[in-house]
Simulated scan of single mutants.
Amino acid sequence: MSKLSPSEHQIKQVSSFDQLIATSFHGNVNALCWNRKLKGDFSEIVHKITLTENMVEIHPKELLALQLSEQGQVARNILLNDFKLLKNNGKSPTINIIKHYERDDAFPFFPTDVYSFHVDRSPIATDTFLCTYYGATSDILPNAQATQKILIPEIRAELKKLYAEECEEGFESFLSEFFFDLHYQENPEAQIINLGIGQLWKLAIDHPESNVLPCLHRAPKEKKGETRLMIIC
């Protein structure tokens, strides 16, 4: 019997949006993937939008107003249908075109931006959904192949200097308040998994009712001169 890779333990494939919504996380599975191959020209949509900032949200009305070729229209219909499916299932999707995210340089020894492997957290039961249609794509990582950064001795020592208080209980609250506890460092031999173009993903997050570990993920470093088109909620 062949040994399963960490990704095969972590990821479950589904064949429809309904299955993506209905399937629960269990055991080591904290990432669900609606695996599909999309048609249409999503790059045309990206190139029709003028970016005045590093990231812009595109509303359905703006998409419908674009003059597109036949393949551009196919891409737009897919994008709008994904948006509608998520919206009709109680989600709050946003369509984003991204040049790059803001980098965090407040603490050089510990950036807390989305380019670092991290988990999402919510006080209520929910999941993260995302799909990249054009441009660089996000990564996830098996939980066993990473270490929470606040547990790395060198980093913890620097954080204690930053906190500059004696009370350990206060220090733990400080780590949570500034989101340091959400970030992870991949191990040297970690098998990073790229989420690919066109796949709609559901990722487990940290919330009180969760029965699984939250999914470690990060935004990609964008390719020079190339923006990203994605849905996230």
Rank of each mutant, 00 (worst) to 15 (best):
K223R: 14
S2W: 00
F117I: 03
L159A: 07
H207E: 11
F17I: 08
F110A: 12
T126E: 08
I192C: 00
L200P: 03
Y134K: 10
S138V: 00
Q67F: 09
I150T: 15
L64F: 04
A157M: 13
P108A: 14
A31L: 07
K224E: 15
F109G: 08
N88G: 05
F129M: 05
S116R: 15
H9F: 05
T126Y: 06
S15H: 11
R156C: 13
Y101V: 06
K61E: 10
E169G: 06
S2F: 02
A22F: 01
D104I: 14
I95R: 09
F178A: 06
K99P: 07
T23F: 00
T132S: 14
D105K: 08
P60F: 03
D105A: 04
P214H: 09
K221S: 07
N81F: 05
Y163C: 01
E166S: 14
F117E: 00
I192Q: 00
F109K: 12
Q199A: 07
L141N: 05
S92I: 03
L66C: 03
I193A: 02
I197R: 12
L130M: 10
I150L: 15
F83I: 09
Q19R: 01
C215H: 00
D181V: 12
G198K: 10
F17G: 06
E158T: 07
H217T: 05
F83E: 06
V14Q: 01
Y163M: 02
K160W: 12
T137S: 11
K224N: 14
K37G: 07
I232N: 14
C233W: 02
L203C: 00
K87N: 00
L66W: 09
G40S: 03
S138M: 12
F178Q: 11
K37D: 12
P93F: 02
I197M: 15
F110P: 10
P214I: 06
Q73F: 07
I21G: 03
L195N: 04
A106C: 07
L216Y: 07
S5D: 10
E62P: 02
P214S: 11
N211D: 11
L216H: 06
R228E: 13
S122F: 02
F171R: 15
H26Y: 08
D206T: 15
E177D: 15
I78K: 08
Y101Q: 12
L195E: 08
D181A: 11
D127M: 07
S16E: 09
T112G: 13
F179C: 12
E226W: 09
Y163V: 01
S16Q: 11
K37M: 09
P208V: 05
L85H: 11
S24H: 09
K99H: 13
G72T: 00
Y101E: 11
K61W: 04
H59G: 02
N28S: 00
K3Y: 01
L203R: 00
T227P: 06
F179Y: 14
L32K: 00
G170C: 05
T126A: 10
Q13G: 02
I155H: 03
L79N: 11
E189W: 03
A190D: 09
P142L: 02
F180M: 14
P220M: 11
A144G: 13
E168N: 10
E158Q: 13
